[in-house]
Every structure is written in structure tokens, then in C-alpha cells.
């Protein structure tokens, strides 16, 4: 019986390729959540928004055969889910943690209900976003396979990171978002419409979470199953803390988490002599360790979870 050595080039390439693909839904959702939190709103409904996005994208793609329409429909649903969260948390000033959990349950329940009513059974589609080989680059040894043969939504997820950085730090809008999240009263005095900025970020968060769900159902998997996000939305919220509310920090966290996830799978395939139960825990243990090590180094937005009331 022949066994491939665990750390051969082929295996490492496999781990990195899988890690990058696994990271894309987390990136969309976590970058969206980051904007929301930078403006002072904690949205714990990410999981529900992802599920609704995943279902909508899958259903529309299945019916029309066009994944772009599926993605567009998911974004519209994301707008609605985001706006609903914004109304509750900004206009009505509900406690954000609790209303977020409420939206998680609504999103999960509604996606289950729609799945039952419209599909009724699990289906596999072959019309989702397939891997794209980027000309020339895809043929590079090793790097080609890892970076340039992914599906379009993975490229979009990674392109989102510098874009988010640019918006947050190099535009007036980004300045307003940060101001509203740090000191909404000062921002208000300077003529920034706090509610408007927060509506924008929370709605954008909804859209990005829904896109993250779509990345799962019509790009990475081409399947929809009830509750298929299996806690990814909550990991995405944790990644925002992990990443210190910075786009590249979030990217680092998402990559680290996904890479370790991919690594533990490959360790099992190549029969690394550690019980599977321990390997399965690895990504989570690592996340906790890094969180503990980074605590105190970064500060959360001062107005996070605090509704704005003009005095």
C-alpha cells in the first residue's frame, strides 16, 4: 500500500486551494458585519441573512439556469433583511444582540419554509458558478492551482477586502462610518446623519451576508440544504472581533480559520496519527488562542451596540 507523504507539494497545494475556497463565504459576511459594527451596530442576524441569501440564489439559479440572476435575487433579499434589521435596531433602538438573534431565527425559519414550499427536496444544480481558469496565470505551477482556478465569487470575495479598506479609510463615507461608530454625538454635531449612515452600513451588511450565503449555495457547493450554513454566520461575527475591525485583519482571520479547517481534513485523509475528534477542534481552539493573544491590542468601536439618541 502506497501512501503519499503528508507534506508533499500536492497535498500542501490541496490544502491551500481548499482553504481559499472555504474562506470566501466568511469573507463576504464578515466584511459586511465589519462595516455594520464600525458604524456602531452589532448584527447577530448574519446567519439568518446568509441562509436567506443561500436559498434565494439557489432557487433562482435552479429556475432560470443563470447564477447571475440568482446572485442578484440574493442581493435584493439581503437588502430587505438588512433594512428590517436597520429599522429595528436604529429607528426603534431595540437591543441589538437580541434583535439580531431574532433575525437569525426568522432567516433560518423562513428559508426552511420556502425550501419546503418551493423545492421540497434537496437538489444538485450544475448551472452554478464553476471554476474559472484565468488565462496564463492558471498554468503557473502550484500558484496557478491555488489562486487562479477558483470560482468567480471567490475572486470577488478577495477583491472585496482592498475595496473595503479603501472605502473605510480613504473616502468621506468611510470617515463618516468610523465617526458614527466612535462618537455619534460629535459626528451629529458636525452634521453627519447618524441614522442614515447606520442604515447604509446595516443594509450593506445584509447584502454582503446574503452574497456570502450565495457563495456557498451556487458557487462552492451547488446544493441547498436547510440550515446549511451550520454556524458560519456566527463565526463571521467572531472574525470581525478577531480581525480587530479592520479589513485585512478580517482577511487574515478568515484565511487562518479556513486553512486550519482544510488542514484538519487533509490530516485525516493522510491518517495523521491524532484522533479525528481533536483535529476537528483545531480551528476553534486556534481561534480562541489568537483571540486571547490579541485581546487588549485592539479596541472595539466605542459606540458599538449603543443606539443613538440625540440629546
Amino acid at each position: 500500500m502506497e501512501t503519499t507523504p503528508l507534506f508533499s507539494l500536492a497535498v500542501v497545494t490541496g490544502i491551500l486551494t481548499a482553504g481559499i475556497r472555504l474562506a470566501s463565504p466568511y469573507l463576504f459576511a464578515a466584511i459586511g458585519e465589519m462595516f455594520s459594527q464600525r458604524s456602531g451596530v452589532l448584527n447577530l442576524g448574519v446567519e439568518g441573512q446568509m441562509l436567506m441569501g443561500a436559498f434565494t440564489a439557489f432557487y433562482v439559479t435552479l429556475r432560470t439556469g443563470n447564477p447571475w440572476l440568482g446572485l442578484l435575487a440574493a442581493m435584493l433579499v439581503g437588502v430587505l433583511m438588512g433594512l428590517a434589521m436597520a429599522v429595528v435596531s436604529i429607528t426603534w433602538r431595540a437591543v441589538q444582540g437580541i434583535s439580531g438573534i431574532g433575525f437569525y431565527i426568522v432567516g433560518m425559519g423562513l428559508s426552511e419554509l420556502l425550501f419546503k414550499a418551493l423545492l421540497g427536496e434537496v437538489k444538485v444544480i450544475n448551472t452554478g458558478f464553476n471554476a474559472i481558469h484565468i488565462p496564463l496565470l492558471a498554468n503557473l505551477p502550484v500558484l496557478g492551482e491555488i489562486f487562479f482556478r477558483q470560482n468567480i465569487m471567490t475572486y470577488m470575495a478577495f477583491a472585496l477586502v482592498p475595496l473595503a479598506w479603501f472605502v473605510l479609510y480613504k473616502t468621506t463615507l468611510g470617515l463618516k462610518i468610523r465617526a458614527v461608530g466612535e462618537n455619534p454625538h460629535a459626528a451629529d454635531t458636525l452634521g453627519v446623519n447618524v441614522a442614515q449612515i447606520r442604515y447604509l452600513t446595516v443594509t450593506m451588511g445584509g447584502v454582503l451576508s446574503a452574497i456570502g450565503g450565495a457563495a456557498l449555495s451556487i458557487a462552492n457547493l451547488n446544493v441547498f440544504q436547510e440550515n446549511m450554513t451550520a454556524g458560519m454566520g456566527f463565526i463571521a461575527v467572531a472574525l470581525v472581533y478577531f480581525g480587530g475591525w479592520k479589513p485585512f485583519g478580517v482577511l487574515f482571520g478568515a484565511l487562518l480559520f479556513s486553512m486550519v479547517m482544510a488542514l484538519q481534513i487533509f490530516l485525516q485523509v493522510y491518517r495523521f496519527p491524532i484522533p479525528s475528534e481533536f483535529l476537528i477542534m483545531m480551528p476553534y481552539i486556534l481561534t480562541i488562542v489568537v483571540l486571547v493573544l490579541t485581546v487588549g491590542r485592539v479596541r472595539s468601536p466605542s459606540a458599538l451596540t449603543r443606539p443613538f439618541v440625540r440629546e
Partner: peptide
């Protein structure tokens, strides 16, 4: 053999199959 650690994680089941 790969155990994903979850009955619900479809994404991980996919990566296990790909591996």
C-alpha cells in the same frame, strides 16, 4: 476516512470529498 465533526456542515463535507 474523514469525520467532519458535524451532521450539518455541508461545506466541510464537500471539502472532505474533494480531499
Amino acid at each position: 476516512k474523514v469525520f467532519t465533526g458535524s451532521f450539518g456542515d455541508v461545506a466541510l463535507a464537500r471539502e472532505a470529498a474533494d480531499a
